[in-house]
Design a binder for these strands. Structure first.
Lengths: 225, 225
DNA sequence: TTAGTGCATTTTGCATACAATATTCAATAT
DNA sequence: ATATTGAATATTGTATGCAAAATGCACTAA
């Protein structure tokens, strides 16, 4: 008799997912105050599970809690996004290494199916599809290694790199034209079981985005002066 | 008019800290069910802030939530602890590098004041003091770099490496006699501003503990067979 | 205009209430 | 004995209630 108390899913988890989606999709914008009464009515739940969900999002840094004032959708500074990229560089590098070390043929096939027919034109719908594929790809990559703690951390913090300036290019720092070949190379390195190469390529991938952000940051500074 | 809504501290935060201390100090043991009624009465609060605190601890993996059944103090597997050490190896390595790169004289003095008069004998009180100093040291090291996200992650996950088998040697994997010289070397590398060396030493420090754990793990397996 | 000031309204943080499970344990059947 | 049933009890997940704090707003003073 195993039968874990699973099956049941608490309300706060559902609320958490809905709310997270609303933030990532910019239905709630950075700086917005989260009106608990309004949202809970909208979701058809009481404030109790909503509170729980908000606390969870606070730990993930998607919202900011100010005691006695409420929760606000967080606005990330360029510094924070750079930090997130720096972390993802080493963490996802490690994940790629692991993935390449343990991958099995069926997973390799699945991996190779990513970015098969990517649209690298400039139309917004294509960019959006690419951005979503990108997220799914990185998630799959991280899961491949079976490194639970690492998965957890990346799950909880990578979102920061995505939710910054999503309005510009769906959260992508660089254009699909530039990142697509990198993705293909990384996929091949992992699928063919080359840990060293996989780690190197993954790090390079993030490093380049970080360098791009750094340049943009300096440029903005110069423009202000 | 700034005056952030700070000052006020919500109850759930206090409960969270108390509870975390109880778990780390083994007042609540791995596997124990957390009786909400009992604990909330003990703390003089209602179940609402307690629930919040428990959810927070769940995210940190110190407790496990089973829907409709309750919360249980988590028991870490050797694999999880190994994963935590592997992560700390690269993350704290990065932190040490950063710290060495940005350290200023007053902080260098503070850093050098750690492990000044360490007791490396075998008596339990000495071990306990060393273990506490060890935690404070690593926390200070991580804060030095000023890398907020990194601090956050290490804060939340290093506890795993500590709370494993605290009953044996206060959570220490190796004896102070063995780690003290490593600590001194690391301190000196950071205080004198040598990023490369600092990172290398920090990683070595964790790597050695991890190797030790690995050996113990294999030994346990052999004993079973 | 701008800057207070006091009162009504909203919102938060927490306690309590309550229905829907889980758990326990005595009574019965095997 | 062991297993099974099923009411009595306890516990969880969620809603609701309420006091304290924050916010908004009309009014006044400069």
């Amino acid at each position: 008799m195993k039968k874990l108390g699973s099956r049941h899913e608490n309300l706060d988890l559902k609320v958490y997912r809905e709310l997270k989606a609303m933030i990532v999709d910019r239905k709630l914008k950075p700086g917005d105050k989260i009106l608990q009464e309004k949202i809970s009515r909208e979701f058809g739940v009481s404030r109790t599970p909503l509170m729980c969900a908000l606390k969870k999002l606070e730990q993930e840094k998607l919202v900011r809690a100010v005691p006695r004032r409420g929760f606000y959708v967080r606005r990330f500074t360029m510094e924070e996004v750079l930090e997130a990229f720096e972390l993802r560089e080493i963490l996802e590098g490690l994940a790629a290494r692991r993935a390449a070390a343990v991958i099995a043929p069926p997973q390799a096939d699945r991996l190779r199916s990513f970015f098969k027919e990517a649209d690298v034109s400039d139309n917004p719908a294509g960019i959006k599809r690419y951005s979503e594929e990108d997220r799914r790809f990185h998630q799959f990559l991280v899961e491949l290694g079976g490194f639970d703690l690492l998965n957890d951390i990346l799950e909880n913090y990578n979102i920061i790199t995505v939710s910054y300036r999503i309005d510009v290019m769906e959260g992508l720092v660089r254009h699909p034209r530039e990142t697509l070949p990198e993705h293909h190379a990384l996929i091949e390195a992992i699928a063919s079981g080359k840990p060293d190469l996989a780690e190197k390529l993954a790090r390079q991938h993030f490093n380049r985005s970080r360098q791009r952000l750094l340049r943009e940051m300096n440029q903005e500074k110069r423009e202000k002066a």
